[in-house]
Design a protein around this nucleic acid. Structure first.
Length: 152
DNA sequence: GCCAACGTTGGC
DNA sequence: GCCAACGTTGGC
């Protein structure tokens, strides 16, 4: 069994915010349609910790902590013609897209902003802060995880 | 709202 | 297999 890993997942607060996760407690992370992000989700193990990141909003940054509650399984929305995430190229025999379910842990005391994360030399290797990176699910090194929490 | 950067698609 | 066109992401 591999050791627990840490992750970061982006969400647009207008679509699904940390408060929405707090309210719903646990949620299937559907709609990921990028292979690299999907592959990372497939590596996630129950109990792994996740930074919840707000993207495409006034103050982008890390806003909370969640944990992996259910490991990867096929994302049902890919089979639903009425869903905006419908993928006609996917089939139930060979599902293309996966999701994990995440459970709310806590909100951070404050938003750790993208601006701060970018300015921090200890975090320069994170895909998050690299120019042009649009990856919405990424691993976070244990040292980065700890360092980010000291910023709270 | 703009637009740079990126990933995917499809013609050839 | 190349690459132009297109759609999307996400900071600003």
């Amino acid at each position: 069994m591999s050791p627990a890993r840490h992750w970061l997942m982006k969400s647009e607060p207008d679509a699904f915010s940390i408060d929405a996760l707090k309210h719903r407690k646990q949620e299937p992370w559907d709609g990921v349609r990028n292979y690299q992000a999907r592959n990372y989700m497939r590596e996630m193990r129950k109990g792994d910790l996740v930074f919840f990141y707000h993207s495409n909003c006034a103050e982008p940054g890390i806003v909370g902590v969640a944990e992996v509650a259910v490991e990867a399984y096929p994302d049902p929305s890919q089979f639903d013609p009425k869903s905006k995430y419908f993928d006609p190229a996917s089939s139930r025999d060979a599902p293309r897209w996966s999701l994990v379910e995440v459970r709310f842990k806590r909100k951070l005391k404050r938003t750790i902003t993208l601006e701060e994360l970018k300015a921090d030399p200890a975090l320069a290797e994170m895909p998050l802060v690299r120019k042009g990176s649009r990856l919405s699910v990424m691993p976070v090194a244990a040292t980065e995880w700890k360092h980010i929490l000291t910023l709270e």
